[in-house]
């Protein structure tokens, strides 16, 4: 819908934030293929239930925080 754009702000704003990504699952090492099925429904999920559903397009996974 209409509430588009502005995602670039996320990187800038979250640069001001602290925090750590939760330890969970496989380590993302360069060169390795990742697979994961999400346990919880994703927000604005677009029907995606696993990383495999995103195949065919590059994916940017950004870890950020709200504090």
């Amino acid at each position: 819908m209409a509430l588009a754009k502005a995602i670039g702000l996320a990187a800038v704003a979250s640069a001001l934030l602290g925090g750590t990504a939760p330890a969970q699952g496989k380590m993302a090492k360069v060169g390795e293929k990742m697979s994961y099925s999400f346990q919880e429904a994703l927000q604005n999920g677009q029907g995606v239930k696993s990383l495999g559903d995103l195949a065919g397009r590059p994916v940017v996974v950004e870890f950020w925080g709200t504090h």
């Binding site: 995606v48 950004e62 870890f63």
Partner: peptide
């Protein structure tokens, strides 16, 4: 898409942090 569920570990100690996956998930 947003989630609170990390699909993998990054080894990073802080945020922001980013992982780019190729078209085949690499």
């Amino acid at each position: 898409i947003w989630t609170n569920e990390a699909p993998f570990e990054t080894g990073a100690r802080g945020i922001p942090h980013c992982v780019v996956l190729g078209i085949d998930g690499e």
